[in-house]
Design a protein around this nucleic acid. Sequence first.
DNA 1: GTTCTTTTGACTAATGTTGACTAATATTAT
DNA 2: ATAATATTAGTCAACATTAGTCAAAAGAAC
Lengths: 155, 155
Amino acid sequence: MENQNISDIIEAYLKQILAESQEVEIRRSEIANQFNVVPSQINYVIKTRFTIQDGYVVRSKRGGGGYIRIEKVKLLDNLDFIDSLVTAVGDHITRHDGLAVVRSLFEAGTINRREANIMLAAIDKTALNTGDRDLDEQIRAQILISVLDHLRYES
Amino acid sequence: MENQNISDIIEAYLKQILAESQEVEIRRSEIANQFNVVPSQINYVIKTRFTIQDGYVVRSKRGGGGYIRIEKVKLLDNLDFIDSLVTAVGDHITRHDGLAVVRSLFEAGTINRREANIMLAAIDKTALNTGDRDLDEQIRAQILISVLDHLRYES
DNA sequence: GTTCTTTTGACTAATGTTGACTAATATTAT
DNA sequence: ATAATATTAGTCAACATTAGTCAAAAGAAC
């Protein structure tokens, strides 16, 4: 709390707006100015904190009147939602993105907190630590997909 | 008392804070500086004195604004049971024996059917299939222990 | 003196910040 | 219309800032 980095602050600012409206549209240079960072840092914040795994869709336009629009994704039915997560997982996934997937499931109400914690425990660095990062990411993807497939039946 | 080593002193310092608040967040280099030790000694103190068996959960982040956060958690009443399962899992476990572990948890009432199914999905042959049976069994063991450790406390 | 614990530091990994360069789109000039 | 220019956003790689790992050395306990 005492020493938050600026990316976290920008993330919080945007999510606060998104808590009240469905989407937020910004001018990149304005936000960069407002928080006193270079414009490309806004891209960094979006790339690391507003991914599809997190449940956000980002559209943008360049040139005069350009913008970046972040939209909180509306979940379709459960099955489509799980499909989209399976696609997002793919055949490799980092811990960071894996966490986002589990969080999405939780926020969508597909799983509860206890179930989320079990999933997280199964894919965290304690569990997957072969020494080969690529292999870890592959196994993490397989575990997630296996669990996601199971969630299809129970829902 | 007089013969305390520096690790004990750092441990006491952190636990004193934890006696009053639920968690403590530090910057590793700051604490290292404060006690005049190398930063990695903080990791040593945490690894030896703030384990999940002791009732602590540790989270951290690297990079700018990085931190180490130690949280005191409420341990459940199932410690001996979990310990025995962790021992049974060891560092390798077959699918068959992994299934027995999950079944034990279910029959003891530690997890419900849905949770059991999530665990099973995470350790079945869909999820773990590297082509190297020994490696699969090793990873399966790590996943199970990671989940078992999470079942030690309320979250 | 052997074994276990602690201390240390070199190396690694993750995350965040910055800026130069590129790409897309809109506006203006011809 | 077309070309030139202006105005946006995107990418990428270098650099900065944290924490993690591991094993050797030192010290303590027995």
